[in-house]
Design a protein around this nucleic acid. Structure first.
Length: 274
DNA sequence: ACGAGCGCCTGTCGGC
DNA sequence: TGCCGACAGGCGCTCG
């Protein structure tokens, strides 16, 4: 499911609370229930339980698609992969189907990790860099410049779509927002990265930023039954719009497969450079 | 170096 | 109604 805007929204929700739900900042872990062992990437389930109990939540932020929860001594990293979601709820509420990890706090609230497809992973580490260290730059980081982006594009001869989805190249883009950014930049998903001039690199980075920022403002995209809360799906340019008409030129949106992933584009707006 | 294929999982949807 | 294949916001691993 979630890409950068959805994870950002969830981080905000955990940090600030919403409606009747409090922020989890300051909450102290009293116990944990690991209901699907493979959800715990590191350490072992036994060590995890031993270490996490008694620690308090001190900070919450996002890096790429990872949720980064700073505890008293360790860092809890959560990656939601395709179907993961997080909920703050009273400890006595009914357990939903597909809950994989439940973190109970002393004050009768709990943080629940729900993940029907079981792809999501959780780490408890003393040094988050061991997991986050391979991530590429944050697209919304103002210190990340066009010239650096252009230089990185020149380093490879790779199709733009898989390259942008490579988390070590740039962090946070997934299938939806890559298609959206490429359409806004009027670049073909199969274009070779080293063909991009500085001008096109500028256009592409700006498009990535516009798409991500707009999606964050809309609290992300809600398509299936999975992630709920955002409404950026109303503004999608190409993703999931196969056969519908391009909002720019009225051509029909096409769907091709790139890197085993559905890829949506307007054949009129997004032409190969050459 | 780069792309294709596959595995990991469960759920939904459309076609017959 | 039931069955079956296609498909799904991700990523790590092989194999050429």
């Amino acid at each position: 499911m979630p890409e950068l805007p959805e994870v950002e929204t969830i981080a905000k929700y955990l940090r600030d609370g919403v409606r009747d739900q409090p922020s989890v900042l300051g909450m102290k872990v009293s116990s944990v229930d690991l209901l699907w062992e493979r959800t715990m990437a590191e350490p072992s389930p036994r060590d995890f339980k031993q270490r996490v109990v008694g620690q308090s939540v001190e900070s919450i932020w996002r890096r790429g698609k990872y949720l980064v929860i700073g505890l008293s001594d360790d860092t809890l990293l959560i990656h939601l992969r395709m179907s993961g979601d997080l909920f703050v709820e009273p400890t006595q509420s009914v357990m939903a189907k597909h809950n994989r990890l439940v973190i109970n706090f002393e004050n009768k609230w709990r943080l629940t990790f729900n993940d029907s497809r079981k792809f999501g992973r959780v780490w408890l580490v003393s040094d988050p860099d061991t997991i986050l260290g391979n991530l590429g730059p944050e697209p919304l980081d103002e210190l990340f410049t066009v010239s650096e982006f252009h230089k990185n594009l020149q380093k490879y001869r790779r199709q733009l779509k898989p390259l942008l989805m490579d988390q070590s190249f740039i962090a946070g883009l997934g299938n939806i927002y890559t298609d959206e950014a490429l359409h806004l930049a009027r670049l073909h998903p199969l274009e070779s990265s080293n063909y991009l001039s500085i001008g096109y690199a500028d256009k592409l980075l700006n498009s990535i930023r516009v798409v991500l920022t707009s999606a964050i403002e809309r609290n992300g995209t809600s398509i299936d039954w999975i992630y709920k809360g955002g409404d950026y799906q109303k503004y999608l340019r190409v993703y999931g719009r196969t056969g519908e008409y391009c909002r720019e030129c009225s051509q029909q949106i096409e769907r091709i497969i790139v890197g085993q992933r559905s890829t949506h584009l307007c054949p009129n707006c997004q032409v190969r450079l050459k």
